[in-house]
Design a binder for these strands. Sequence first.
RNA 1: GGGCCUGUAGCCUAGCCUGGAUUGGGCGGCAGUCUCCUAAGCUGCAGAUCGCGGGUUCGAAUCCCGCCAGGUCCGCCA
Length: 574
Amino acid sequence: MYALEECQHHISSALRSLLKKHKVETEVRLEIPPQEMGDFAFPCFSLAPVMKQSPARIAEELASAFPKHDWIARIDAKAGYVNFFIDPTYLASITLQTVLERKETYGYLPEEKKKVIIEHTSANPNGPLHVGRARNPIIGDTLIRMFKAAGYTVESQFYLDDLGKQVAILAWGLHHIDPSELPKPSRQKADHQKVAFYQLANERMKSDDAIASQINDIVKLSEQGDQATIDMIHAAYQPVLQGIKESLARIHITLDTFIPESMFVRNESVDAVVRALKQTPYCHEEEGAFYLDMASFGIAGRNTKFFFVRNDGTTLYATRDIAYHQWKAHQADLLVNVLGEDHKLESRQVSIALELLKVTNLPQVVFYAFVSLPEGKMSTRKGRVVYLDDLIDECIERAYQEVKKRRAGELSESKMRDIAQLVGIGSLRYNIIKVQPEKDIQFKWEDALNFEGNAVPFIQYAHARACSILAKATQTHHQFDASLLTHPSETMLIKQLARLPLVIDSACSGCRPHAIANYLYETASAFNQFYRDCPVLAEEHAMRSASRLTLVYATKLVLWTALDLLGVTAPEEM
RNA sequence: GGGCCUGUAGCCUAGCCUGGAUUGGGCGGCAGUCUCCUAAGCUGCAGAUCGCGGGUUCGAAUCCCGCCAGGUCCGCCA
């Protein structure tokens, strides 16, 4: 058990037994009081009616009766609260000791022995990833890293839509459009080269019914499992998918498995889903097509009909999604999906259908709001997009300018390029992950490329400062005397380091990746204040200097570990 | 027409699930700070009817109801 957790447990159980003496059985929930008022607080207001005393009086009694313990330096009763002050020396000694023992796994939680599948990105492979969609892989990959740290076995999955209209349009375009008709692609990557075929094919389909029906034929044949058609589509999207993977790899994202939608048609599990759904009392027929009436499940709107079989007997995307999730439910203990908010209704409908099929392991879904441009929503079809690859380049280039501005002459060209790489990519990931997923984001270059304040360079810089001190130190053993680390800035920093396990736990259980970003910012900030107040190498008292050096080392490890949760790497100098 | 999400200083954002003590940060603005471990830092100042109106409560940014604004969805599309 980590330090703060142990301390919290100690306080709650001591409070519980104190209250038991007053014949009060209650759940003890501790709060974090405002600064300077303590480390944990217990509000007594709800006890007042039960104990027939004023909250202030109860707080005083609890405070004076509270047993002495190493954890607690001081207890205050104030305005109906019992405020507990952790003993900074005790906390420092336990926390630093734990960091030194655990090193890169400090903060990681015990092995849960549970498996979670996290599905993310799952973009149609018809063109390059754009910034609107970039939120998906970044949230997904961060969740993956968080769940691993929280002790889960994690598999990342990309659900590959290889049967849909989008890939059929792409395939048609590649076979019927003369490349000379198209504008020159901005990049050599396959995803950038092929997207123009998709865009033009999409336009033609809308104005020409013959083309529309040719594309529909492709969709139909592939859904029926026609091997030649499936192969043709596969050949069309495969290079695009490869391009998408390369883009993701640039921002440190790889996926474990790609599950093609066609798998569930081929193995006939979709047919089984259809048969089972038809058996349910919610199933109705309309002109040869079948739907579930979801009105009684809280689905409201113009139409509560959830169609799962067309009148020609073929299935729909959502039907296959049900088969996919039914299969997935048996592959792991926990399922997490990252989806755009436009999929909210469909996802709900799929879950209802799964419940009707007696599937109990339903996916937990993290929805994110769209990233729009000042001109409006991004759209591959309309060509109104900022591509992820372009944003990556721009971030790295801008980071390079910043490094050059500050360190030209001091660092070699290749070193500056390396730093720019880490800063640029880190900025991109951090800027997207630091905002809670359900909040709308309007993409503005000046915000995305702002490297000051609450941005990743601030954190990387703190890490680099720590590395710089460590590099200059002659001492190699990490020894410390916790009783010498009593400066307020030292105590603040140590408390911050002690929080990491709690942050991982709560961020993970609530699927709130932005909490990690916040924690990092606060930790870097605490380190910068320590840096200002507490000289390390220049400190004359040898043991104090050594202890501070150990604190610097611990901070470096924590910053590194937490940045890694976001898929961000920190340079040793910048 | 209906469902879901969002609304916190000029701009961006945390806190909302699980109500609690002066709503934390950042950008931008103003004023300081490098004979001292990298000033991508640090310090101070100014700036908020927590969208609006009710309700519950000893206590509401947080819970409930209504309204307003923005996003998103309501296809035998994916």
